[in-house]
Amino acid sequence: MSDVIVKTTNLTKNFPAKKGIFRRSNGCIYAVHDVNLEIPEGKIFGLVGESGSGKTTIGNLLVRLIEPTCGRIQLNGQDILDLKKSEEIHFRRKVQMIFQDPYESLNPRLTVYETVAEPLIIQEKRSMHGNEKELLYALESAGLTPPQDFLYRYPHELSGGQRQRVAIARALIIRPKFVVADEPVSMLDVSIRVSVLNLMLELKDNFGLTYLFITHDLSIARYMCDWLIVMYQGKIVESGNTEEVIQHPLHPYTRALISAVPIPDPMVKRRRVELSEAMEDTSKPPLRCRFYPKCETRSPICEREYPEFNDKGHAHFVACHGV
């Protein structure tokens, strides 16, 4: 097994819940609760779940866009939460992020050159000029050919797919080790999604990257990821090898999720798992299983305590009393 590049211990993030016209703080939303991850180097690590599952929050925590309420994050064995200012810049060099919306993730007033060169300018204290060599290489690697045609264009002159490639070139230019990709293709047209996904696979090998791939789309997760983590309301419910999790899901939530994916084949009739629409209130701490109100196989113990995260063999972990 390869080395662990990113490790989190009891990672927790609560957001204050503000209500009423005076925005009084009352309680909080448990967005991510007690999450332990070990992301192996050189793999694509998938994080799947519905909206509100906390998957984007984890992504933002790992690149330190937000600070956790408690818990630890380690990168290559080094704790990244209590870095000094001077060390932080080294951390920023190793970790990059690709955002969901390519129409929003590029500054509309900067040219492609200025956008892609920015990490170099910040990290290596370079001047704005004279970075053409690196830039052309990064743009070409991101599939923008011929690259010199793109250098002085503005985002509004590019299509969605081209913008996302520019964002990828920007993320790669300082040769990071670990890239968080938050729904990188969900805003793109269907016919160009695959090419961006294939590009990301290629770049992983060429640049020796490790991805945290966040998505709500299980089919895309299956296409991309080596490992899969399924999240539900801020908790990990299942994790394991992607094929293992998708072919033999153990947690009732994962089973429901997989059964709900429409199949583009009129010959196949899918079996539906009917779930109740009841939801656990995320402003309560997870004392019982989060999935309890929806679960069909629940038993009294599920209401009393939160299930342990157990190995069911083949490195397939699941947090459910019923399995």
């Binding site: 996904l197 089919s219 994916v261 583009p264 196949v268």
Partner: peptide
């Protein structure tokens, strides 16, 4: 252009 959730996993080409 659409990855599949079941069946054989194959490389897609898209358009």
């Amino acid at each position: 252009s659409f990855p599949k959730i079941h069946g054989k996993l194959e490389r897609l080409e898209g358009i």
